[in-house]
Simulated assay, not measured.
Amino acid sequence: MSILETSAQILQLMTSLQRGIRVNDFINHIQMPKSTASRVVNQLVQYGYLEKDDAQGHFMPGALLLGAAHIARQQVPLNERVDAALRSLCERTCCTGYISLLDNREILVLRVIHGRHALPMVTWPGSRSPACGTLTGRALLARLSEDEIDEFFASAPVATQLNGVHQSEDSIRRLIQQTRERGYATAINESVTDTASVSCAVGDPATHEAVAFCLSLPQSLAHPEEIVRLAGLLRDAARLIARKTGDMRVTETL
């Protein structure tokens, strides 16, 4: 195996484990001989790909990797990464795609990518909806901590919003927890009549941004197998974006 392939394995292992790595990790996870692991790691440290944390005894990304990652994040904003991924998914699935964010406890639609399936109604950019009553809201709320969720529901605007939705706070909390466990949210004939949707959320820790992106299709086509397929496609896209932005909230759960 070439030094390049060995180095790639080591960096992929670090990404997979989402922590600093030790030489024993190479031996245990990728069956690399200790002598080979030590030699390659020393070379990666020498060239700036890794640096050693002497206090913890493990290796972390070095200045060269961190600098390149910083440039990459600056060059491609989160919205553009999600837009590119969603356009590809819409082309593959014929679904309509939406990109939304959480703004003042409401969901604000940023972009719409029209698919080939005819929907009974399309939600346009600039539209707002109660976050607690939409699947994209649940996808974004699932990223919050329990304390943040409590603060969200304790706010006066949300109390007002709850009067206009057909679900209780407890049922919405259960749906948020389900979304957190699955990594995606689903809705069939919920806020939009005769429409089914699947949504994931992803963020950029460097800018503290997070957006939800979803695929929508006619309810008549939303067979259980199709919902599972779309959810898998969205989760794969979210994982890929998260690896590029360093969003550990996605990589830890999906």
Rank of each mutant, 00 (worst) to 15 (best):
A222N: 02
S191I: 15
E209C: 03
L44T: 04
G183T: 03
Q46F: 02
A242Y: 04
D150K: 03
V112N: 09
A212W: 01
I149V: 11
G62I: 00
P77Y: 04
R39Y: 15
F152D: 05
L234S: 01
C132T: 12
L66K: 12
A196V: 01
Q56H: 13
E225K: 12
A206I: 08
A142I: 11
R243Q: 13
M121Y: 14
F153N: 07
S199A: 15
N104G: 02
C132M: 04
A69F: 05
M121Q: 15
D83V: 00
R128N: 09
P33V: 09
M60K: 14
T123S: 13
R239A: 13
A201Y: 03
T134M: 07
A156E: 14
T253W: 00
R19V: 13
T93F: 03
N79H: 07
D83C: 04
A69L: 08
M32I: 05
E190I: 06
G115D: 05
I227P: 02
N28Y: 04
Q178S: 15
L78K: 00
A63Y: 10
C214E: 02
S155T: 11
D103C: 05
A237G: 04
S129P: 03
T160Y: 07
T36Y: 02
V40M: 11
D194W: 14
E146C: 13
E225P: 00
G62D: 06
I27L: 11
L175M: 11
L86T: 06
L233A: 08
A118Q: 15
T15G: 12
F153D: 09
T160Q: 15
S168N: 11
E91V: 00
V76E: 09
L65A: 12
Q46G: 08
L119T: 06
L13H: 07
R138T: 07
L89V: 09
D236V: 08
P157M: 15
A237T: 06
A201W: 03
V250G: 03
S88F: 08
L17K: 12
Q9M: 10
A231E: 08
S220V: 07
L240H: 10
Q12D: 14
D83I: 00
L86Y: 06
D236Q: 13
T136D: 05
Q178P: 11
T96F: 00
I241F: 09
Y98Q: 08
S155Q: 09
Q75F: 00
I30M: 10
S220H: 15
T136L: 04
G164A: 07
Q9V: 04
